[in-house]
């Protein structure tokens, strides 16, 4: 009984309910929601925002808000591709991923060093590094789209995990192999945040930095880990995006910061730090992807999209905030 009550009060519950209502509604209007190709499309569309959501989740649990990932991911992805192209790379595709992750980690460490040393507001520091990455990308590297990506990556882009054909929609659907990267990363982050001392330290730092320091958590080390890991995910996402699109476009992540942050928050992660779940992050991302992908299915013009996203964010955060204040009132009276 108690457990049931707890579920009701959680943000994840509302997000899940909303997804269900939306799915049924779209199915009723178009009859094309629960088709294999649509489901696979949604899963495929979840990969990139889902991975970025995980990195934002880790940062947000520690009490910060990272906005540098759209361009740190683009920069690590782009530098890797030009480097590989310069050496006419034909080796294992894992090297491409590793290289991109390495670039990501370096950028993340810069964030981490500044935040660790000076304890400036994370939003502003990452805003600055985002601007720097953008400057390097377009100013120094003169970035533009590279359609001809190295051969090993191209062949990975063509490998699929699942292929289906939906009779109802008369369309073929497929899920690329890199979905596994997303899947493994999700499992790894779950394990990190729930089961390791480092993960719990991140929660502890988000709960109360002063206390964390006093009981002997090496807070500086934790900060370096958080931002290094967030950078790692950004690099990984960059290369995944290249595989998914089969091309390398430096602007591919622009504007994603707002939606990713919003998805993480809709899933119940607190901006003030210290609380949030992976389930929530995935549900929030799913909700956004459905709204993004399925408006056409319902015959609503595309330009309504932003409006709906805005309403979703305001409603989602409003409900969460309302619940907190109601809980506080109840606590006082009882």
């Amino acid at each position: 009984m108690d457990k049931v009550k707890k579920i009701y009060t959680r943000n994840e519950f509302y997000t899940a309910a909303l997804i269900l209502v939306l799915a049924v509604f779209i199915e009723l209007r178009s009859g094309l929601f629960f088709t294999s190709n649509n489901i696979l499309d949604i899963l495929r569309a979840m990969i990139v925002p889902g991975m970025l959501g995980l990195s934002e989740y880790i940062v947000m649990v520690s009490g910060g808000c990272d906005v540098s990932f759209p361009y740190s991911a683009a920069l690590s992805m782009y530098s890797t591709i030009i480097l590989l192209k310069a050496v006419d790379f034909m080796g294992n595709v894992m090297i491409a991923f590793l290289l991109s992750c390495l670039f990501g980690i370096v950028i993340g460490m810069v964030n981490g060093l500044i935040i660790m040393r000076y304890r400036f507001p994370v939003l502003i520091v990452t805003l600055a590094t985002c601007s720097i990455c953008q400057g390097i990308l377009f100013g120094i590297l003169n970035a533009h789209e590279i359609p001809a990506i190295p051969q090993p990556i191209q062949s990975l882009a063509k490998s699929m995990l699942i292929r289906t054909y939906s009779e109802k929609a008369q369309m073929a659907g497929s899920l690329p192999l890199v979905f596994l990267v997303f899947f493994i990363l999700t499992a790894a982050v779950w394990f990190l945040m729930r089961r390791t001392a480092m993960g719990r330290s991140i929660f502890a730092v988000g709960g109360d930095v002063g206390s964390a320091e006093r009981i002997g958590i090496k807070v500086n080390y934790v900060y370096m880990f958080i931002y290094g890991f967030a950078g790692f995910i950004a690099g990984l996402t960059g290369m995944t995006r290249v595989v998914l699109m089969d091309t390398c476009h430096p602007n591919t992540f622009s504007g994603m910061d707002m939606t990713v942050i919003a998805a993480v928050i809709l899933g119940g992660t607190k901006v003030t730090g210290g609380s949030g779940s992976i389930t929530g992050v995935m549900l929030g991302t799913l909700l956004f992807v459905i709204v993004n992908n399925s408006l056409q299915l319902m015959g609503i013009p595309n330009y309504w999209q932003k409006f709906f996203l805005g309403v979703l964010i305001v409603l989602g955060t409003g409900i969460a905030a309302f619940q907190v204040s109601r809980k506080r009132k109840k606590g006082k009276a009882g």
Partner: peptide
């Protein structure tokens, strides 16, 4: 509604 300013304005920007 006591929504954190960053979120509220992020949402209203979309709106």
């Amino acid at each position: 509604l006591k929504i954190p300013a960053m979120l509220a304005t992020l949402g209203s920007l979309q709106l």
